[in-house]
Amino acid sequence: MSQSDPLFEALPEDPPVTPGEGRNRALGRTGVLPSQAIRALIAAGEIAGAPELEDSQIQPASLDLRLGKLAYRIRASFLPGTKATVRDKLAGLTFHEIDLTKGAVLEAGCVYLVPLMEHLSLRSTVAAFANPKSSTGRLDVFTRLIADYQESFDSVAEGYKGPLYTEICPRTFSIKVRSGSRLNQIRFRRRVSQQSDEAPGRVGDKHLRAIHSDVGLVEGEAAIRDGLNLRISLAPIEPEGLIGYRARRFAGVVDVDNVGGYAVDQYWEAVHLGGDKRLVLDPNEFYILASKESVSVPPEYVAEMAPFDPMIGEYRVHYAGFFDPGFGYAEGKAPGAKAVLEVRSLDIPFIVEDGQIVGRLVYDRLTEVPETLYGQGIGSHYQAQGLKLSKHFRQE
């Protein structure tokens, strides 16, 4: 594929959406790239891997990244900055190397750096952004992408050419990984050359209200302020009266590639609502809770949850944070999937009550509808979820 492939030609910005027309009009070419555009980047050599990329890595609007053969136990997290490569900084921070080819345990509370199998050679109008996969976040594994000459985590500048690395810090559970394990994913955002927006394709509140009027982002009225605001659910799930889970410290190792292999009660403590109908988040404890709303991401969009908003509390509500196109979506039906909240209070106890706003989703346009949506034959584990742990635990 040539660099001038029509898939990437600059087209005008989308006109404003009005109710009733949002799903049917042609989309512009500014925004997040869907699966077919990711395949085009692979065919053009702008995304490559050693060994070659597998088709199963391609998600509706992102690409799963694979761990390489070695992990480096490092003293502390770091960024290379604009004048250094990751390997320039790594030499003075490494404690020891770990062979991942036969699998190895990464211990809770330690920081590791792993070169990835994938590398990039992007054109000047395409940037990349990363986040942990949903299952990674629900294990309380803090994972961030690092690239050469970059000043921020999980972000790769337009036109980047070079290797990729992932920083891994298991917080509660020690994890077993191996070469080829997939802990984070990368997505690609395109801007037309004349744009100066930091986030081209980002959906503003006015546009978001129009989408909600058209297809329904949540049931009933939507609270929209700098994105779609979500409330926490502390409504007990009968008959057990469960409202969430708190991770058990000093539990066993979790193999990230072992789906359905672990009993819930060995790793999680069930949380029930007290008589005062509120929950006190203990500092540095990790909780799995759920949103009160069921959420929908229409096929033309993706969504991302802001992980931390000091305006609504000193806690973090989502580590993975990325919602694929089609999540919770069924045309003509109410939204069908809760947002699972990975909650950690920061430094001080914090009280949450049923229905309290705890986070917000921001939506981005795709350049076009993906070939396959989330939940449609691609092994999507969380499409119709309510309160749900990661895929590693047996929900009986």
Rank of each mutant, 00 (worst) to 15 (best):
Y165F: 15
Y165E: 01
Y165W: 14
Y165H: 10
T166F: 00
E167K: 11
E167N: 11
E167F: 11
I168T: 10
I168C: 09
C169W: 01
P170K: 06
P170Y: 08
P170V: 03
P170M: 01
P170D: 00
R171L: 14
R171Y: 05
R171C: 11
R171W: 03
T172M: 14
T172G: 00
F173E: 01
S174P: 14
S174H: 09
S174A: 12
S174E: 06
I175H: 13
I175W: 07
I175Y: 07
K176M: 11
K176D: 01
K176H: 11
K176L: 07
G180R: 10
S181P: 07
R182W: 07
L183R: 07
L183Q: 03
N184K: 02
Q185Y: 06
Q185L: 08
I186M: 12
I186D: 05
I186R: 03
R187E: 15
R187Q: 15
R187P: 03
R187N: 14
F188V: 10
R189M: 14
R190C: 09
R190G: 07
R191Y: 03
V192T: 13
V192L: 08
S193H: 08
S193Q: 08
Q194L: 13
Q194C: 04
Q195H: 08
S196R: 14
D197L: 13
D197M: 06
A199H: 10
A199E: 12
P200R: 08
G201S: 08
G201K: 14
R202W: 09
R202M: 10
G204T: 09
G204F: 07
D205M: 04
D205V: 12
D205G: 00
K206P: 00
L208E: 05
L208Q: 06
R209F: 13
H212K: 03
H212Y: 05
H212C: 05
D214V: 07
D214S: 13
G216T: 09
L217S: 09
V218N: 03
V218I: 07
A222Q: 03
A222C: 11
A223R: 15
A223T: 15
I224C: 00
R225I: 12
R225M: 05
D226C: 00
G227K: 08
G227Y: 09
G227S: 08
L228Y: 04
L228Q: 06
N229Y: 02
L230C: 13
L230D: 13
R231L: 05
R231E: 09
I232Y: 05
I232S: 00
S233R: 05
L234F: 04
A235K: 13
A235L: 12
A235G: 02
P236I: 01
P236S: 01
I237M: 04
E238A: 09
